[in-house]
Design a protein around this nucleic acid. Sequence first.
DNA 1: CACGTGAGTTCCCTCAGGGAACCTACTCAC
DNA 2: GTGAGTAGGTTCCCTGAGGGAACTCACGTG
Lengths: 154, 154
Amino acid sequence: MQRTDFGGMACSIARTADVIGEPWSPLVLRNVYVGITRFDQIRQQLGISRKVLAERLRWLVESDVLDRREYAANRHEYVLTERGRELVDVLMVMARWGDRWLAGDAGPPVLYRHRTCGGTTHVTLTCADCGTPMDADTVDVLPGPGARPPAPAS
Amino acid sequence: MQRTDFGGMACSIARTADVIGEPWSPLVLRNVYVGITRFDQIRQQLGISRKVLAERLRWLVESDVLDRREYAANRHEYVLTERGRELVDVLMVMARWGDRWLAGDAGPPVLYRHRTCGGTTHVTLTCADCGTPMDADTVDVLPGPGARPPAPAS
DNA sequence: CACGTGAGTTCCCTCAGGGAACCTACTCAC
DNA sequence: GTGAGTAGGTTCCCTGAGGGAACTCACGTG
């Protein structure tokens, strides 16, 4: 393969980027999440080429992020797996950043209503332990148990 | 340009992907965040080619995510801007997902200590309004004010 | 049965990524 | 002051991934 393989790096960011780091992948996931689940629907909404879309979908299914279901004879749709639903977290944080820094005067193209409280709001990152905000400024990075590459040069 | 331009889409995820969607960009940011800030340091740690690294850094500086500083005569380092520090949120959520689904038996390669509480923990997404968890299952997506493309087909 | 539609596959072409070599400024040891 | 070393790139070529259009195939339908 030409593209450097990130999957083998001892870095969870690299491994995640290996799954959704391709330029189109987050957008494909976004579409599936909002209910645009069929091949030609996705293709038209994104303006992606058929070839690349087929490759991306194959890869996302292989990565167990999407599931390919036959909803009628030879008609397929893609749905998020559990892994996929959790990847939406990444999308929501990306959306938040884009809203904040790139939306311009027009305002955010999409709003998020939190069903729990009913508010039109956005996500923030908090600590799973103490519940207070957790971001670049309040985190220290330390080596973990999997710090050595799990797959040695075969 | 060959690669489709995401920056003009009326979608904050696409716009964010336009900035950090290139495969290497999240890893470059990660490195800068953890203190690997100089050209050859980054290059060696990632195994990225000089050409591509130079392109990525130029783009990230242009996007106001990194700042290029001369720390000595003709010696440069890259530091995160405010935008860049907020992008670390995206990285932390990516890392969390990778830790959860791709780390395998070796465990997470990196641990995150929350300075506020001292715990080795991870991020969760909560609603900025009500503070309760906010994820794919508790959010509705609605069209926002910037729903029409801000840049019409020139 | 001709036609449309969903879901791709195949083909060609161009451009972006990888790799190595090259270049320029500056520093330091000698 | 000069040769080696280091930082921070640029240039070159080559391959392969993305874009686009054309083709396929199976099904459904008037």
